[in-house]
Design a binder for these strands. Sequence first.
DNA 1: TGCCAATCCTTGCGTTCGCAACTACTATAG
DNA 2: CTATAGTAGTTGCGAACGCAAGGATTGGCA
Lengths: 173, 173
Amino acid sequence: MEQRIADTEERSEPPTSGVVGPSEAALLSGLDPVELRAWRAFLTRHARVARRLEADLIARSDLPLAEYDVLLQLALADGLRLRMNELADRVVLSRAGITRLVDRLTADGLVTRLKCASDARGYFAVLTSGGMARLLDATPGHLAAVRRHFLESFTAPELETLAELLERSRPLD
Amino acid sequence: MEQRIADTEERSEPPTSGVVGPSEAALLSGLDPVELRAWRAFLTRHARVARRLEADLIARSDLPLAEYDVLLQLALADGLRLRMNELADRVVLSRAGITRLVDRLTADGLVTRLKCASDARGYFAVLTSGGMARLLDATPGHLAAVRRHFLESFTAPELETLAELLERSRPLD
DNA sequence: TGCCAATCCTTGCGTTCGCAACTACTATAG
DNA sequence: CTATAGTAGTTGCGAACGCAAGGATTGGCA
């Protein structure tokens, strides 16, 4: 862990400058330029926006994005409750992940666990009034941030297009 | 940590069923339906695709997505090298994150650190031949997966649209 | 009825990440 | 030339995640 030292010194100009090497052709051969652009744009755009929003949301409401998402899903759910499984699916998290996320929210009093009557294996996560309050408090600022960092870049018809495209479910699942 | 037990029993039908509560109106008031759809679609689509691709890539090439991304950026960079800072920016990771990611890649012999001649504070991460080999080996399968789980959903003009929209940089940055 | 596979959720463990603090070096100003 | 502010990168620390294994319960099928 100590010998992270560099081995060589850098000559002043990049050695193979100008030449891209045999790599690029081989690398990109699998994807045509439009595909590559779309894919990279999708990836980096998400990464940047998510990073930004997470910071904003924590600074403003002391609530990570994942926590916010869970509260929102519960608030929108019928009876303000959702099975752990369903919750994991909606926020796209592993089951273990959802267990601990709900743990945290429960510790903060924003959510309660409720045994499912019809299936003794199952639990509901239920939004508490405190959780609802917290969500309602955090929402305006967060939505503003979403708009500022993402939605604002597009016109209404473009948003429609975007929604339509991204809502398409993956081919084979 | 032990009293995670449910407090109450569930009555057989959801209590406030049918009624959505005062919450939804307040929650969604900040965003019109199209905005909401576009935003949620963007979020969940990314989460699902990324999760899928990560699993695929690890299974097939024992390489996490972030590692793959770094190797790719280096392969595409002039001289097969990039400053740590620049690298962090391209793969959208914190500087601490990039330090450790490069640590790992170095330990695996896929990357080398090289002192920057013109600025003694700086380092280059340089792709080794082993790293290039690993990248070339992993790429075909990965690209196939990207296509299967994402690109395949769209036509060429749609991809063009998607790329154009998502490449727009955020307004104020 | 009785058993075995499947399902729901949780926990142990290892890994990764970001923030904040730190070192080393550069650049600006006096 | 020296002080001071700023930048590049690394490290301690705590938080969060996923995988795999485990306990409990359900559901089909003999």
